[in-house]
């Protein structure tokens, strides 16, 4: 089983992004997804900057994939998409059917924001050239298991296994809204929130996280305890979503679980200090996403 690093979903400064990926070269990750998935206004990293990072990581032996924006609204969004699809070197992760349309015939990755809910849909995407799919966040182990039986041959399966869950996209920017700023003049307030802004209920329960036009879970989806089960049902890749600090330690913990250097409970314990909010794993178990299953006794 391989480890992938998902695209950075937050808005970090160019220096932070470059420093982050300088370190990634030495981590036990096999695949790195790069690029801006959430908001076209975020411009600290330009396409050439991303391609520079991509080249360095490729030299370090990583498979690099360029992720495309999930919500494509304007002609300029499509222009960016065409440049990514036509980059000529790196594969892309399609996060919208518009990207699937343009990437036809390339070996692309079906991102988590394409609604792949059944085997026939996956077959159609394979006919377009998809070589890998990332399971939509809200699907369970049970649904995945049924789908794996119908999976086209050669199709790789990736599961989002760690991080705040991307739950929704809007054209409205909720971070700008918090500061009473219009989206077109947002002062790039996302830069001040490197893991989103926590939204709490009126009785102080952490519930969601606002990340510009994206709404995430406040809780951190964490499937480190399910790694050996995933290996058994044929999951090829686990995805770790970058967080501002301690992503290296998260990767290391998953690596020990995958290599069976640590038991599930040891890996969980190793990871626990680096969770910056409550854990959740409900989706995997076919329950509400926010739930965290009780610890199973050894």
């Amino acid at each position: 089983m391989k480890i992938s690093l998902g695209p950075i979903l937050y808005y970090w400064t160019k220096n932070s992004v470059q420093d982050f990926y300088d370190n990634v070269a030495d981590w036990p990750v096999d695949i790195v997804y790069l690029g801006e998935v959430v908001c076209s206004r975020r411009h600290e990293m330009r396409l050439d900057d991303w391609l520079n990072v991509a080249s360095k990581l490729a030299v370090a032996g990583k498979e690099v994939v360029l992720s495309t924006q999930a919500l494509l609204e304007s002609e300029s969004d499509l222009k960016t998409l065409r440049r990514l699809v036509g980059n000529g070197i790196f594969g892309i992760e399609a996060n919208d059917m518009g990207a699937v349309h343009l990437a036809k015939g390339q070996n692309f990755v079906v991102g988590p924001h394409i609604n792949t809910y059944n085997g026939d849909t996956l077959e159609i995407l394979a006919e377009q050239g998809a070589k890998r799919w990332v399971m939509p966040m809200e699907l369970s182990r049970h649904v995945l298991y049924e789908l794996m039986v119908k999976k086209p041959s050669g199709m790789e399966t990736e599961v989002f296994a760690y991080g705040r869950l991307p739950l929704a996209f809007s054209s409205r920017c909720f971070t700008a809204r918090r500061y009473n700023l219009p989206k077109d003049d947002c002062h790039f307030m996302c830069l001040q929130h490197p893991c989103g802004m926590t939204l709490k209920t009126r009785e102080n329960q952490s519930f969601l996280a606002l990340n510009g036009t994206q709404t995430q879970s406040a809780s951190i989806y964490n499937l480190i305890g399910e790694v050996s089960d995933m290996q058994q049902i044929g999951v090829d890749i686990v995805r770790i979503s970058p967080q501002p600090e301690h992503t290296a330690e998260v990767v290391a913990a998953f690596s020990t679980a995958i290599e069976h250097v640590a038991s599930a409970s040891e890996a969980k314990a190793k990871l626990a200090p680096y969770l910056f909010d409550e854990p959740c794993d409900g989706y995997w178990h076919g329950r509400s996403g926010i739930e965290q299953s009780m610890e199973t006794l050894p």
């Binding site: 609604n115 054209s171 709404t215 996403g289 926010i290």
Partner: peptide, 21 residues
Amino acid sequence: CVMVEGRCILSSYATGESPNT
């Protein structure tokens, strides 16, 4: 709907059931 329809799973995050599923 303030979110892109078909791309919002807030409901299943809270309750286990969403428009998609």
